[in-house]
Each structure stands twice: as C-alpha cells, then as structure tokens.
C-alpha cells in the first residue's frame, strides 16, 4: 500500500496553484489535508500524474466574519473550526458537527475545503453547508464563480468544480437570534462516517412560532439532501413533539437511500426520520433558550 508515482508541486500562492491546474487539468489532483486523498493514493485507487499541494498557501487558511456570517478559507483545518470562538458564535452548527469528524489527528490535518471537495455524502460538513445554505467560491485561471451548496454537490464524490478549479472559500450565513441548531448522527463507531447524519437549524419568532427551518441529511443519497418538503411543516407553527414526529415521518418517507455494507436502505430511511426529529427537537430547545 504505497502511492503510485506522481509529480509533486507545492505552490505558495493561489495564482501559482491555478496555473498548475490550468496546465495539467484532469491529470492533476489537488492535495489539501490529505485525510481522504492520501488513503486513496496508498490504496492506488487513484493515480494522478501531478499532485498540487495547497498546504504551502497560507493565504487560504482563515476564518473571517463576513456579512453577519463567516468566510472560511478552504485550507482552514477542521481543528481550527472546532476551536474558533467566532465559528461557535456565528455558525454554531459547524462547531457542533466538527467533533463528529474522524479523530483529533485527522482534524489536525483535515480542511473544510478538502472535505467539501471530496464530497463524500456521508461526511458531516457537506451536510452542514447544505443545511446552512452556504455558498462556495471556485477559482480557476478562467476566473471566479460562486455556487450554492446544492449546486456544488453533484453526486457521490463528484462536485461541480472543473478539473482546473480550486475551491478557495466557503461562505456561511450567520445564525440570527433565537436560532438553534444541532447535529446528530449514527455511525458504527465514534469517528466513523455517518450511517445517517442530520444537520438541523430552526429559528423562532418572538411568540415561539417557527420562522425558518432547515434540515440536511447525510448518508442517504449521492449528495447531502435538504428535506425542505418535510421541514416546511414547521413554518408558522409552534412545533411540539407531534409536529416533530410528523416531520420525521415525512423525512423518512421521501428518502430512497442506497444500501451498503454497514446499513440497509430501510435502516437509513427509518433512522433519518428519527434523527431529524431528534435534531430538530434539540435545535428547538436551543432556539427557545435564545439560540446556539
């Protein structure tokens, strides 16, 4: 289990990286934290001719307040997100989800850009960004474009990024007042990819009426899925246990997950509903308490 041969470049600026990708296109692979790419190389499941390592581009690692929300440089380590006070304050859902990713040593290297670009539908952060309705900034020598999360994730391990594009920034809206969020998942073991994971956000008006709700489910399809048809039930309501159970039932109903080694389609379908109910309940509790 040793990587195949490749050429290696470690540019120190985004521009230099883009030039390299412009030159090598599909033959190149971008290396960020390496916590998914390196296993694939060691197993020789991918064999790029060229590796463009972004780790030397310090300018891509940042957490910046932006429009009430956050702008996160693609090379920001998951560990930095976990520890950041501004992340906890503005996008608590991110801070809630990150501890579910692998283990400390993985998060020390793993980056937000890397996990989004890898686009494993069972991963935590793609679901979080989807639930939040975040946007992703892609750059190439051809220019820059901004995609909403639901257009970025295309299929299993596939995104809308072109071979010469680099995901450089993730923009997340901030949580308003009386907004609560929660991340819940079931995995075979702590730190494993989710069998099912749910990211939930709920906002309440002054009278505890739900003004906004969003749930994204990981592990139940080729991309993280927003289940707006189900969460719509909550809008204008003062949700109680029965409403949440009904939302859960609808979430479950609308999914047709694939089976794999670790869980059947039926399992994922059923548990997605359970976790949606539980995560929404947790998020509501926080929203009622003022938010977080």
């Amino acid at each position: 289990m040793k990587p195949p041969r490749f050429e290696y470049f470690d540019p120190t600026t985004v521009e230099a990286a883009l030039d390299l990708l412009g030159e090598h296109g599909e033959n190149a692979k971008v290396l960020a934290g390496g916590q998914s790419l390196m296993p694939l190389l060691n197993f020789r499941l991918i064999r790029p001719q060229v590796l463009v390592d972004l780790n030397g581009i310090g300018a891509l690692a940042y957490v910046r307040p932006c429009d009430g929300g956050l702008a996160l440089g693609a090379l920001t380590r998951q560990r930095a997100l976990e520890r950041s006070a501004v992340v906890r304050e503005r996008c608590p859902l991110v801070a809630q989800a990150v501890p579910f990713i692998g283990h400390a040593a993985i998060r020390n290297r793993g980056t937000i850009g890397g996990t989004l670009a890898h686009a494993d539908p069972a991963a935590e952060l793609p679901a979080v960004v989807t639930a939040l309705g975040g946007t992703l900034v892609l750059r190439s020598i051809r220019g820059e474009r901004v995609l909403p999360a639901d257009r970025f994730f295309v299929s299993y391990l596939t995104t809308a990024a072109a071979p010469d594009e680099i995901l450089v920034e993730v923009r997340l809206p901030g949580a308003g007042s009386r907004t609560g969020s929660a991340f819940q998942e079931v995995s075979r073991r702590h730190g494993d990819f989710a069998l099912v994971g749910v990211a939930a956000i709920v906002s309440l008006g002054a009278d505890d009426v739900c003004t906004a709700a969003s749930v994204a489910v990981a592990g139940v399809g080729p991309v993280p899925l927003r289940v707006d048809d189900a969460t719509r039930l909550l809008l204008g309501e003062k949700p109680d246990e029965r409403t949440l159970a009904e939302v859960g039932r609808r979430v479950s109903e609308q999914l047709t997950p694939d089976a794999d080694l670790h869980a059947s389609s039926e399992y994922r379908k059923q548990v997605a509903g359970v976790l949606a109910r539980r995560a929404l309940g947790e998020a509501l509790g926080k929203a009622r308490g003022g938010g977080a």
């Binding site: 197993f43 073991r189 702590h190 494993d192 990819f193 080694l261 670790h262």
Partner: peptide, 28 residues
C-alpha cells in the same frame, strides 16, 4: 457488535480496510 469479514455473492471480500472491518475503539 462490529466485526465481520463480508463477502459478496461473487466471492469477493468486501472488508479489506479498517473503514469496513471495524475494530472496537475506546469509545465502544
């Protein structure tokens, strides 16, 4: 609770990594 060497119907072993063959961790 965790471990199984699973084969598909064609006789291919499906569990050849530590992501698929699950050893207990301290969390369990």
């Amino acid at each position: 609770l965790l471990e199984e060497l699973a084969y598909d119907e064609g006789g291919q072993l499906l569990t050849t990594t530590f992501m698929d063959y699950l050893l207990p961790t301290a969390a369990e």
